[in-house]
Design a protein around this nucleic acid. Sequence first.
DNA 1: TACGCAAACGATAACGATTATCAATTGTTT
DNA 2: AAACAATTGATAATCGTTATCGTTTGCGTA
Lengths: 142, 142
Amino acid sequence: MIDKTLSEREQIREAGLKVTHPRMRILRLLEESEQIHLSAEEVYRILIETNEEIGLATVYRVLTQFEQSGILKRHNFETGHSVFELDRGEHHDHLLCIKCGAVEEFHDEQIESLQYKVSEAHNFKTIDHSLTIYGHCKSCQV
Amino acid sequence: MIDKTLSEREQIREAGLKVTHPRMRILRLLEESEQIHLSAEEVYRILIETNEEIGLATVYRVLTQFEQSGILKRHNFETGHSVFELDRGEHHDHLLCIKCGAVEEFHDEQIESLQYKVSEAHNFKTIDHSLTIYGHCKSCQV
DNA sequence: TACGCAAACGATAACGATTATCAATTGTTT
DNA sequence: AAACAATTGATAATCGTTATCGTTTGCGTA
Ligand SMILES: [Mn+2]
Ligand SMILES: [Mn+2]
Ligand SMILES: [Zn+2]
Ligand SMILES: [Zn+2]
C-alpha cells in the first residue's frame, strides 16, 4: 500500500532499506513506466537501455525486497516468470490476453464476497487469492 | 473430460497415442492415487517406489501429452511446479493451504457467471480462468 | 508370426528463471 | 573523515522442465 505523498526516498526508508542508487532507480522506473506490469528481465532491460550499470541480481533482489515491504505486488501469471506492479492500495484481478500479452485489470466486489463465502464454508482462513481470466483481448479477436 | 466407461487402454488410444507401458502405468497411478493433485516429481517418485524403471523425462512427456489430449488438467499454483489431476469433466477451482499444502476443491456457479460478465464488459473472449484461494485450512489454524 | 519402421523411451545435456556466493563498494552513523 | 554493516554486481549454482539422440518397442502389414 503506497502513500502517494511519500517520495521514493521516503518509501525506501519506510521499508527499512538503505536509499541506494539501484533502489531509487528501480522504484522511479516502476512509477514512470507506461506498462504497469513488468518482469525482472524487463526492468533490467529498461535499465540497460538507460545506460544504468545495475546488475540483474540486484534487480531480482530489489524487486523481492520491495514486494516484501509492500511497495510492490508480484503476480505469477502462467507465463513462466513473475511480473511486478506498484501496490496502489486497491486490490484487483486480471484479464490476460494469451495472444498479445496485454493485461487488463478489474475489480468485482460481488466476486470478492462470494470467494469469502466459499472460504468460510470450507472453514478456510483466506490470506490471499489469485483470479486470472485468460483469453483474447478485444484487438486480438478475428 | 473422461468417459469413465473407457479403460485406460482405450483412453490412451482415443488420445491418438500408442499404448505403452509407461503411459498405462502413469494413467493407472493417477486413477488409483489417494492424492488427486500430483506433480511430475511426485508421480516419478511413486513409480520408483513401485520399482518401475520409468525415466523422469518420460513422466514429464506423458503428463504433458495427457494434458494436451484432455485426460489431465494442469494447475500452476504458486508452488514453483505444476500439478496434474484427472479431468473429471466438472470444472472447479481450488483452496490451497500454504501451511500443509492441502488442496480443496470448490465450484461456485455464481462466481463463474460473474467472471463471464466481467469478461464481456471488457470485450474479452474468455478461454480459461484460474481462481485459487490461498490461506490456512481448518486443521492448520491455531 | 515375423518384418519394418515410426513412435516412444531413458539417460543426460541444455535451458530459462531465479537465488546464492563473495569480494569490492557504498550509505549511514559516529 | 573513519568505521562498519548493508548492499552491490559478476558469476556460479539451483530448480523445474524441455531438447537431444541412440536404442527399444508397439503395431500394421505381409
Ligand atoms: Mn494489476
Ligand atoms: Mn482439482
Ligand atoms: Zn491481445
Ligand atoms: Zn493446512
